[in-house]
Amino acid sequence: MLKKIVLFLVIGLAVGLAIGLYLYNKPHDTAADIEIFEEISAHDLYAKFSMDQKNALATYLNKNLLVTGNLESFVQDSSGTKWTLSTQSDDLGVVTVTFAEPLNQKPTLNQSVKVQGLCAGFLEGDELLGGEIQLNQAVVAQ
């Protein structure tokens, strides 16, 4: 009987340790791992945040969005890959997309692109700089 109790305890401890280790070392989720919440254009997404930021945050924060927009600029360096999508808004607001993994191929500017990314929120600009919606852990949508 004692042997059985000790065996259960050892197995329980081992399972607990394994779960703990898995959780501690679990990888960061990317947009590819999560179900798409909504497909939307960069223009429409920006319009929603500009009109009612509070409501848009409640709807989209941390959600996986499939966004289409024109590629305005990109950064590809040691810190990773980041694309800036035009929203065609009057205040020159943008959607910036930070990729989960650096991309090898350089994209073509001013072309329509489709990306999946987790919505991190909205940063207001000022009278010269438009606002910015940030998507992260992104992947290029197929």
């Binding site: 501690y24 679990k26 990888p27 989720d29 924060l61 987790l118 991190a120 929120g121 940063l123 992260n136």
Partner: peptide
């Protein structure tokens, strides 16, 4: 800065 954009080594 957006808080969710702070990247840690561990996801947890």
């Amino acid at each position: 800065a957006l808080q969710t954009n702070f990247k840690f080594e561990k996801a947890l």
